[in-house]
Amino acid sequence: MMKLLMLFPSLKIKSEWIFRLIENLGGSIAVIGTNEINTERIKTDQLNINPFYSKILRRINEDLNSNFTYPTILLKAEKKENTNINYIHFIGYAIKFKTFIRKSKNPTLIHCHGKDVMWDLKDIRTGIPVHPPEYFKSLEELSKDVYFIANSQFTRKQLLKKGVDESRIFINHFGIEIKEKLITPINNKTFKILYLGRLVDFKGPLETIEAFERACQLGLKGELLIAGGGEMEDQCREKINQSKYKDRIKLLGWVNKEEAETLYQQCNIFTAHNKVDAYTNQVEAFGVTIIEAMSFGLPVVTGKCGGVEDSVVDGVTGFLIEPGDIGGHAEKLIQLYNDFDLRSRLSANSVDRIKDHFSLEKERNGLENIIKKISNKSTSLKNA
């Protein structure tokens, strides 16, 4: 029976994906070690891995926590809960537990999600590299003893670039609940295009607004709904205010899960303009909102960049345009606007692709299979 000791930096986050992941894994998670407990949203047993004395030790030397506090707490939890695998989210967080990983009797899985595998990532405020040299040294040391889950082919390729043995990398896509949307004729006056996600450069909100403007010039009569917040919110607002079509562009701010689902149901197309962030070098490692939109039957138009290619099949579930090609982006929007049959076909294909590749069951079964494989490998090594 799978019994996970899961480690996650904070359970008090805005993103819904971690809550769905925990719910999906159900009783397989014995306990979650975290810096910030959340008993309101999560009923799984949680363990505070930063007791009061860890703050004192941190002021003296952070290595004291890595070498003393964390191993003491986690080895005790491992024994008490009789766990059989350590499941850590993000490379940067796993590095804090190097000593525990070495002392643990169980194999360790590190789940990589995005920023942790973007090797040339820069701080948007300072332009300084986010990952110091020690990060790469620790990754090299860890890679000999742990296994990795990559959330996309892009993430897998990034790990390979750093010399991680391919036998230690497993791909497991994020899974979501299937939410089919009935496809009915839409009156052109109510045609809606949705951008839902953080307002950050690598998602291309400014390019999306510009592509929508060009599509309007080509005859599109509809609205662009932008849901989300982030460091580019003021820039987006300024661009909208200067737009000839500002009355058709709505900046909605952050939305919760229920509001997001309502937007998916109300809209006809999902769009963004994924690219390499001009300030930070970040890209979309996977794109949860994209598969959410597809689960509601929304064709996706976005940039061909990062992990987006794992979910969006060009010409089948949507369109992938070259990053920076605003004209091409606009043409795909107008094409879907004008061709109901095309939109319906891509819509049905999107739902089918989610069922076949990105369901909750697929994710759970994938994780279980990965754990079985590394458990068998660990047993073989111990018996060798």
Score class of each variant (00 low, 15 high):
N151R: 04
K80T: 13
R102V: 09
K332W: 04
H131A: 07
F154D: 07
D45Y: 13
V283R: 14
E261K: 12
T262C: 09
F296T: 00
K14C: 10
L121Q: 09
S66G: 11
M2N: 12
I371N: 05
E292P: 05
I354K: 06
T271Q: 02
L252K: 03
F358A: 05
E368C: 06
N281T: 10
K203E: 01
D277V: 01
L139Q: 02
S104G: 06
N376T: 14
Q335M: 15
R58Q: 09
L159Q: 01
V300T: 11
E223W: 07
G27P: 12
K189Q: 13
A211M: 07
K157E: 15
R41A: 12
K332C: 06
S143E: 10
E368Y: 11
R20A: 03
D277L: 01
R41V: 06
E259D: 06
C216L: 04
T289C: 04
N38L: 05
A30K: 11
F212K: 03
F174R: 01
E363D: 01
I32V: 04
L64Q: 00
I290V: 15
R353E: 10
E231N: 15
S311V: 08
P299W: 03
N35G: 15
N86T: 09
T271Y: 01
W17N: 06
K382T: 14
E180C: 04
P185L: 05
Y135C: 00
N369A: 15
E177S: 11
S167I: 03
M1K: 14
V308P: 07
L21D: 14
S54D: 00
E322C: 06
C267W: 03
N188Q: 13
K250N: 07
D63N: 13
A211Q: 08
R345V: 09
S66M: 11
K179F: 10
E309P: 02
Q153W: 11
T39C: 07
F90I: 00
K105R: 12
A293R: 00
H357G: 04
R248A: 13
L182S: 15
S243P: 10
M294K: 03
I124D: 10
K161E: 14
D120W: 04
K162S: 02
S375I: 10
N349H: 11
R102E: 15
E140D: 14
K162Y: 09
M232Q: 12
V308W: 06
L360C: 12
L47I: 07
I29S: 04
Q235T: 06
R198N: 10
C305R: 11
W119F: 12
H89K: 03
I42V: 15
T155M: 08
S104V: 08
A330E: 02
R125C: 02
I101T: 08
G287I: 00
G204C: 00
N61I: 00
T379S: 12
I29Q: 00
L333Q: 08
N281F: 02
E259L: 06
L346D: 06
A211R: 10
R125Y: 12
E233A: 12
N172A: 01
N274Y: 01
I22C: 01
T184I: 13
R198W: 07
K192N: 14
L218S: 15
N383S: 14
K3A: 10
V283K: 13
I42H: 03
W119L: 05
